[in-house]
């Protein structure tokens, strides 16, 4: 339970960061790659002048699919053959706007590399790891993004076409405007507080229902949310919801937990927020109680003075 809350909290925090990032960024790059079929074979360019010299790029998994915001790591095998000696090649990745890339050796530490020396007569290929990742503050719109990886040396050049498929990330978060997760309420009266429902995913959410289910509130309480349904919540957008809590007339003072939840109609995202509600003694009864106690003490004192000696 706690772990879940923490997780949700972390997710919320990340989502919040991402959402704020998306406010800053311009509209993300649109997917341009038309190819829907999986192009397993890589494009190979050959240098005519030196027919024997050959550079080949292969990737076992050229199309990666992931949620927005995560890394796409491609392992690319580079095979150089036909040359007389070893040669230094440039490495270059072309990524869509909004993404950054990093090239690293296939094995070993995360040192970024820009060039690679290849031995022509080596029997096996070198592996290079290309990591593509959107900018931290920018969540790419779901779709396919083409990535080109190029290895060149002089005229010898080879490129491979890779694909990053960004799937939609549906996520929500809920908080209160000031971050306080507790509120005070008076029994038998309407008590208002505000929660903020935010879309921290990368896709729009439709018909988000905000509610406090019966099992999530003490018996006999009424909890209404205004609005109780948000027609559309754009990715990164937030919406304030007014929650009205009316604890039942006979609620014993103390702390009670309320869970407000939000869920779009499509049920592909969910969030909830536990609010600790402190039910206060209604002022009048508090005073009446104190009054009774004072009255009894005064009455006792009077009786003692009146009827006791001295």
């Amino acid at each position: 339970m706690i772990r879940k809350t923490v997780l949700i909290g972390i997710l919320c925090a990340v989502a919040l960061a991402l959402i704020s990032a998306s406010f800053i960024s311009a509209s993300p790059v649109k997917a341009t790659a038309p190819a829907s079929k999986c192009d397993m074979a890589s494009a190979v360019l050959q240098d005519d002048a030196q027919p024997t010299e050959k550079l080949e790029l292969t990737c076992q998994y050229p199309a990666l699919s992931s949620y927005a915001g995560l890394n796409y790591s491609y392992s690319i095998s580079v095979t150089y053959s036909g040359g007389k000696e070893s040669k230094i090649f440039n490495l270059k990745a072309v990524v869509p706007e909004g993404f950054v890339s990093a090239i690293a050796p296939g094995y070993g530490e995360g040192q970024e590399i820009a060039e690679i020396r290849l031995d022509a007569n080596k029997g096996y290929p070198e592996t290079v790891k290309l990591t593509v990742r959107p900018y931290a503050w920018k969540v790419p719109v779901p779709g396919e993004y083409p990535i080109t990886f190029e290895v060149s040396s002089g005229n010898l050049k080879s490129l491979i076409l890779l694909k990053a498929i960004v799937t939609a990330n549906y996520d929500m978060k809920m908080t209160t405007p000031d971050g306080r997760l507790n509120t005070e309420a008076t029994a038998g009266q309407d008590n208002n507080f505000t929660v903020v429902v935010g879309n921290s995913g990368s896709a729009d959410l439709e018909k988000v229902e905000v509610s406090c289910k019966a099992q999530d509130r003490p018996n006999g309480w009424t909890v209404t949310c205004q609005p109780d349904k948000i027609d559309s919540l754009k990715a990164g957008a937030t919406k304030e919801v007014q929650v009205t809590v009316k604890p039942s007339e006979k609620t014993i003072s103390g702390d009670y937990m309320l869970t407000i939840q939000a869920e779009p109609e499509s049920k592909n995202a969910f969030t909830n927020l536990q609010i600790r509600t402190t039910v206060l003694t209604p002022t009048i009864w508090g005073w009446v109680g104190v009054g009774i106690v004072v009255l009894v003490i005064v009455a006792l004192a009077i009786i003692f003075i009146r009827f006791g000696r001295r």
Partner: peptide
């Protein structure tokens, strides 16, 4: 009577202050 009435009203008064349910 004084003993019992005072103790019951004291508990009632303090209790009312505490639970807030009349």
């Amino acid at each position: 009577a004084i003993l019992i009435v005072s103790i019951v009203t004291l508990v009632a008064g303090l209790g009312l202050r505490m639970i807030g349910v009349p």
